[in-house]
């Protein structure tokens, strides 16, 4: 399929796991995002197209897709910045089951957050005074470096270790565990260290750093995982967790 000078050929994944790419012609406009392309196709060419988005300003993390082979947050990706030639291929996030078209099933991703004990375990009740966390404390600085995750799943889709071991907890869940491990208010660290040091835990990371390379928030989950490796090793050597 050819495209006019002011048009773009956009191939979209259609169907479930056993789907295929279908091509559409979309008018090129200034300041167009990848999400705009998908929305245009749904509004004007095929209302049955399924995809996921919410905030459109890079906060909610729901619009991540595979664009020309790499995972991206589509609402903040300008077409003009990534276009090579006149064609773009957009699919659902990799390493996750496909529900339909561009919507990946995020359940395995969030189930692993639970498995990694990525849930805050309060050590105080609401009746006590709020905890004072000095911004300059080492724990807070370590947590700050990893805390801006928007749960978009891009790091998970980019991770080779997840690709090779579908049970591996993955960079986002481990990054979340690292922020909680450094949260002075949390009391769940004994259980958390056990959760992230199992056979599908942090030691499966090969430090390829694809998560860091693709993270739209410029976080470095590999560094968080390296922190978890150190902490779990200390816990193992001091007998706080079993091997």
């Amino acid at each position: 399929m050819g495209s006019a000078p002011d048009e773009l050929e956009v191939s979209l994944w259609r169907g479930g796991e056993a789907g295929r790419y279908e091509a559409y012609r979309v008018p090129l406009k200034e300041n167009q995002t990848v999400l705009d392309l998908v929305t245009w196709i749904q509004r004007y060419l095929d209302p049955t197209l399924s995809y996921r988005f919410a905030c459109r300003v890079g906060m909610c993390g729901s619009c991540a897709m595979t664009v020309d082979g790499r995972p991206r947050w589509t609402c903040r990706t300008l077409v003009a910045k990534i276009l090579k030639g006149r064609r773009l291929e957009i699919g659902p996030l990799q390493n996750l089951p496909v529900i339909k078209d561009l919507a990946a099933d995020m359940r395995p991703f969030f189930e692993k957050w639970q498995r990694a004990k990525g849930v805050f375990a309060p050590s105080q009740t609401r009746r006590e005074a709020p905890a004072k966390i000095p911004p300059q404390s080492a724990l807070r600085i370590a947590a700050d470096a990893a805390i801006e995750c928007i749960n978009c799943g891009i790091c998970y889709a980019a991770c080779d270790s997840v690709r090779w071991n579908r049970d591996y907890l993955g960079p986002a869940a481990l990054n979340r565990a690292w922020t909680l491990l450094n949260d002075a208010r949390d009391k769940g660290n004994a259980e958390r260290l056990r959760a992230v040091s199992g056979k599908d835990g942090c030691h499966n990371c090969h430090s390829h750093q694809s998560c860091e390379r693709h993270c739209p928030k410029a976080l470095n989950p590999t560094a968080s995982i390296a922190g978890l490796k150190r902490k779990t090793l200390e816990a193992y050597l001091t007998g706080r967790i079993a091997g």
Partner: peptide
């Protein structure tokens, strides 16, 4: 890989 194998 477990923490024990990682250590070894």
């Amino acid at each position: 890989m477990t923490v024990r194998l990682y250590l070894w």
